[in-house]
Amino acid sequence: MLILLSPAKNVNEERAAGRAATTPRFLDEAEEIVSVARHWSDDEISQIMKVSSALAKLNRERFSSWSRGGECAAGLLFDGDVYKELELSTFDAQALDLASRRLRLLSGLYGLLRPTDGVQAYRMEMGRRCPGHPAGTLYKFWGTKIARAIADDARAIKTNIVLNLASEEYSKAVDPAALDDLTVISPRFEEERGGTRRVIGVSAKRARGAMARWVLHSDASEAGDLHGFDVGGYVFDSEASVENRPVFVRG
Rank of each mutant, 00 (worst) to 15 (best):
R245I: 14
M124Y: 03
K9I: 14
S203C: 08
A17K: 15
F141N: 13
P246C: 07
G118Y: 00
G143R: 01
P7T: 13
R208Q: 13
S35F: 00
A204F: 08
Y170G: 09
G209N: 04
G228D: 09
S221K: 14
G232V: 05
A154I: 02
R25I: 12
G108S: 02
E44R: 07
R208N: 11
F229S: 14
L5F: 11
G251L: 07
I48E: 06
R60S: 00
D81R: 10
Q94A: 11
V249F: 04
G228H: 11
V51G: 00
A210F: 00
I3M: 13
R198Q: 14
I200Q: 15
S64W: 01
L4C: 11
E168R: 07
I3D: 10
V247D: 02
A135S: 14
H217E: 14
L112W: 09
G224Q: 12
Y122H: 05
S52M: 04
A30D: 02
A178K: 09
F26A: 03
E13Y: 09
D43E: 12
D237P: 04
W214L: 03
P187H: 15
K140G: 05
R148H: 11
L4K: 08
Q47L: 08
I146L: 10
E71C: 06
R148S: 13
E125A: 00
